[in-house]
Design a protein around this nucleic acid. Structure first.
Lengths: 210, 210
DNA sequence: TTGACAAAATTAACAGTGTTAAGTAAATTG
DNA sequence: CAATTTACTTAACACTGTTAATTTTGTCAA
């Protein structure tokens, strides 16, 4: 039943799908750079359209609305963030060292991707609750990486036995506090970020020690 | 030289100034409630104009632009915030208790004024660096209240002698972390806010103890 | 009270924005 | 090649902040 015609049909159909994916990807790529340069408020769909050489309404053929495009931008960030945390998790088998490295990865991500960090955790935090867009399967829930590292350490008796969920919240809040404060507050000199982070982590390590 | 005419002139002149102040106040008042209900993104000058029964351009006779109006909204928050922190400072002479109460005041403000908190510390943090609008004299720099409480406690040997500025940053970051995370993240159940705050404060108290 | 002047507020307009509906061009199919 | 689906654009709507020109309102001296 696999005639030449069928193969052609299938081929051209998938080619068309590929083109569609390419343009969707191109829109997203262009949107990301524009978003990073102009920020949340200065970011517009018409700019994106201009940049890719299509009319503004074309974007609506690939994204439901501006919010969906923004979510996809945020999602790219969540993906990289999750991968960085997972890498930190994998980089050590010592439970305390592991948690330290996850914290370091969190801090570094915020410092190196301030615009993305703002979007993900300060401007549109509700994106966290949303489900991943179709086509992505490798999404890892970043928070669960942290809680897993904690509960494993607790189970093996290396980390003080608190409630893991709550303990994850404590670490997250502490890290987010330092990062977001530095990103927001022009008062706070940026060179204080690193020592502030180090201090925070030292305190937390002490709290989690047996 | 104070003829009847002069007195009348002066009176009407000041009355006019009073009216101007009244309308400016009315605009600001209306803007605040609209801002609190519609949020940062849904807040528009034309809405404000509609609410007070004036044409949109009238607002520009009292505020330079939207940003100046927004800053004045934020400023009302900074004022209340500063007063709350000052009250907490005054409420005890015990240094540790004092710091605890400042932390409590910080947390409560965030929980009770989420929209304002967002504007002040998450969306437009650069407003912190701006100077107060004319007509306000009782502004108290909130951060300096915290650092003063710390350095006084350190001077009197009640609190471990760290660098006060840095220590203030640590406390601020920790408090901001809890508050902003709760405000942003729909994942985190709101009932965890209080225990998370309590835990954070307990850790900090231990760190500052001699 | 009237006429001149200044202050206050308005109307009209511009350049943007996100978004929808209708129309056109292009590619794919029988 | 004709028919039909797919891709894209044009035109329009309802908003937004903001500026310039105009009108209304209030205050003063004659």
């Amino acid at each position: 039943m696999s005639t030449r015609g069928e193969r052609l049909k299938k081929g051209s159909a998938s080619r068309r799908v590929q083109n569609k994916r390419d343009l969707k990807r191109q829109i997203l790529e262009s949107a990301m750079t524009l978003f990073e340069t102009h920020g949340y408020d200065g970011f517009s769909l018409r700019q994106v359209a201009e940049a890719i050489g299509y009319s503004p309404t074309t974007i609506y053929l690939y994204f439901k609305d501006k919010d969906e495009l923004l979510f996809n931008i945020a999602y790219e960030g969540f993906r990289d963030f999750g991968l960085a945390l997972q890498a930190a998790y994998d980089s050590s088998s010592d439970h305390h060292e592991r948690i330290w490295r996850i914290g370091r990865a969190y801090f570094d991500f915020g410092m190196n991707h301030p615009v993305h960090y703002r979007l993900m955790f300060m401007q549109r935090g509700e994106f966290l609750a949303q489900t991943a867009p179709t086509g992505y399967t490798d999404f890892v829930d970043s928070f669960s990486i942290l809680t897993r590292a904690l509960s494993e350490g607790m189970d093996e008796g290396k980390i003080k036995a608190f409630e893991p969920q709550m303990t994850g919240g404590l670490l997250w809040a502490s890290l987010h506090g330092v990062v977001s404060l530095v990103l927001t507050n022009s008062h706070l000199p940026p060179e204080t970020a690193e020592p502030l982070f180090a201090w925070q982590m030292q305190i937390l390590q002490r709290e989690l020690r047996l």
